[in-house]
Design a protein around this nucleic acid. Structure first.
Lengths: 390, 390
DNA sequence: TAATAGAATCGAAGCGTTTCGATAATACGG
DNA sequence: CCGTATTATCGAAACGCTTCGATTCTATTA
């Protein structure tokens, strides 16, 4: 009786057997309401809480999910994966699961760098977030655990994944610019190696064509080395060199969009008056650029949630159908696109939700809507505030 | 024999008893070298790995450490706590421990928001990082688990903590400015509520006096509402209003330093020529300000490491002496202080290590030194790069 | 050489659950 | 009113490890 009470104490005090108490704990059926109540009362009275390791041992389930991130992803300034993790963690609580976060180098090297939770059978499923070495994916697959990727996907591996609705986002951008009167739209893609960038690019092309807008080869730059500010800057330069110029630029991510803006300013062009610019990702830096960046917001936390739910499905129902889940995106209108309000004269917030799932299969948990309150829109708070004292 | 091998399989194959194998696993003494070798061979051959929950159940230790963070701390753009967590996680691996990261609201509210790992006896110790509601600290204390605070401290609670060497850092700043020829040094502190800010302030005063430099009340502004950019801006304004002006400003954190610079620029003053500015914390934004900020770098990951080691000590040796551990800091010289090189004509890197522990008790793990390679110093890479495509 | 101490190994109990097959209690249809 | 199906509860084994006290073996000492 010293230390915390155990299930045995509960059983004794309730005048029932261990197994019955266990049935109540696990919310199994075939327990009379009366018994259930009695057990719950005793549990409350004693302050009993089942012990993790004992459960794990008996049930063959650890109650943990492994969350794998490359270290560079985790420590980058933009808290993108941090938010995804948070979404996963919050959702995991509902299932009474823990999330074991571990970081790895980009590619598998030494044996002792392998996430121990795999070796110790300490997780019931694994989530991998972000671009990671294929060797890792292959390695982890061998453990035959439920596995879900977030914000990454490898076509030839047949894995479930949660990705943002890149195609939908690109469509939103083109349509917004189009409705704002632009017909000559350029694209800055950096390099197309990253699956998300490629998708945005393809959808850009498709949407342009679908809207009857012509593509000018000189306005589409997808040959840079990377997808950073510098690459956007260089790509913009090339576009400015073309004889005819577009009136708007869709950059495949915010970093490159910032590079575009920088280049335009240096060239003495005014954004958005001489050239409109729209990005993708809604990173913080987009708020500090002048003019502030119109972009596509991604529901980061929701991505983490969706992945966790998917994993739980796989764990509980052995549901191993491969799914691609699209996380919703939305347009965030700021000043860099030069399009003040919606054509109908709508007010703030200038956000349009785009429901994905245009060709992929079922999209779980879409449109909770409430989250859009998080999104910074239009007006207010111009000051740059990187961090107060912690 | 299906599924993973267990300790039983190892014992059988090695022709030894369970207990002997267990002794080897736990690196206990009183095992002959021959036996040890044989066991290890079999383990290797079978690919055996002890199972977590079974261990936990038998040993009464979960093998987990709880890491508590308030949600705002975790998701802020500056990856300060993220890095601390990473340090903890990496160090935990050495002890074969897992770190369970959970976030909480600033103050305790609903019961079901309590970190489950406490209730489920799923951690052997707890680390709390950053400023957090006292109610949380009090609540967690009741579980009688080893507890360490990082980057926060509450004098009246007698708790072990790991904090950066605020006093040492402030001293470095004053000395650097002094050696650079400044004698009229102002201080911008925002408000002194935060323990770290208060320490920096006190140490600033002490060092000034120790160096025989006089303090001018008009140059010391510690009455703002917060410690953000805006507060630095306002404080700077007041200082500029004084009849006599200082030639250098020490802002108690980088955010306020940035505010100071902004104000100075707007007033038509040039930094560092008309006024030198130095900050504290080495946040990323300090690299993107013009001129780039001279500041005090804090070894974030090391703070996490130190805390984990301390916790492990407490777990293993029941060593419950209360300790305050100081994490080392170093001066990072960039352009905002206007002091090009060290007086001896030293070259890059412009970093001076300051060993803390000036009055606090033992400081664990100081001066590993290797980490200073992480620190951005002096030259190179001017471009602002918030985030490439992930 | 007998007595003793120490080192190496072993057996068995125990950790706190879940789960499966058995049993007891209740309801139902004919 | 009895046999059967269904529901509620129970007992005991099992999960994979640690640990403690007991046992065996070897070396040391008087």
């Amino acid at each position: 009786m010293n230390g915390r009470p155990t299930i045995k104490d509960v059983a004794r005090k309730a005048g029932l057997s261990l197994s019955t108490v266990s049935l109540v704990l696990n919310k199994r059926e075939n327990v009379s309401d009366e018994t259930r109540r009695k057990v719950l009362d005793v549990i409350n009275e004693l302050g009993y809480y089942p012990q993790r390791s004992a459960r794990g041992l008996a049930s063959k389930l650890s109650g943990n999910i492994g969350f794998v991130l490359t270290d560079d992803h985790f420590t980058q300034a933009e808290p993108f994966y941090t938010k995804i993790f948070l979404g996963t963690e919050l959702e995991a609580r509902k299932y009474n699961y823990y999330v074991l976060l571990t970081t790895v180098a980009r590619t598998v090297k030494e044996t002792d760098e392998i996430p121990r939770f795999l070796l110790e059978q300490n997780v019931d499923g694994v989530i991998i977030a972000g671009r990671i070495g294929l060797s890792w994916i292959e390695y982890i697959r061998r453990f035959k655990l439920p596995l879900v990727l977030i914000d990454y996907d490898v076509a030839r591996h047949n894995l479930s994944s949660v990705v943002m609705d890149n195609r939908g986002g690109a469509q939103l951008v083109v349509d917004h610019l189009h409705k704002g009167g632009h017909t000559k739209i350029g694209f800055v893609g950096g390099d197309l190696d990253h699956p998300s960038i490629a998708e945005r690019y393809l959808s850009f092309r498709e949407t342009m064509q679908a809207r009857g807008l012509s593509l000018n080869g000189a306005w589409v730059q997808v040959d840079e080395a990377d997808t950073r500010i510098r690459d956007g800057y260089e790509a913009m330069k090339k576009i400015l060199n073309s004889a005819d110029r577009p009136t708007a630029i869709f950059a495949a991510n915010d970093a490159m969009a910032i590079g575009c803006i920088r280049c335009l300013k240096e060239s003495g062009l005014r954004v958005p008056y001489d050239m409109a610019v729209v990005g993708f990702d809604n990173i913080e830096a987009g708020l500090y650029v002048e003019p502030r960046l119109t972009t596509i917001n991604v529901h980061r936390e929701e991505m983490g949630e969706l992945a966790l739910r998917r994993i739980m499905e796989m764990i509980n129902h052995q549901n191993n159908v491969v799914t691609k889940t699209l996380a919703p995106v939305e347009l965030v209108v700021r000043e860099s696109c030069g399009i003040k309000t919606q054509e109908h004269g709508h007010q703030i917030p200038h956000t349009f939700s785009k429901q994905g799932g245009n060709h992929e299969d079922l999209a779980h948990g879409f449109g909770t809507g409430s989250r859009s309150a998080d999104v910074s829109v239009g007006s207010g708070g111009t000051e740059h505030e990187p961090a107060s004292e912690r």
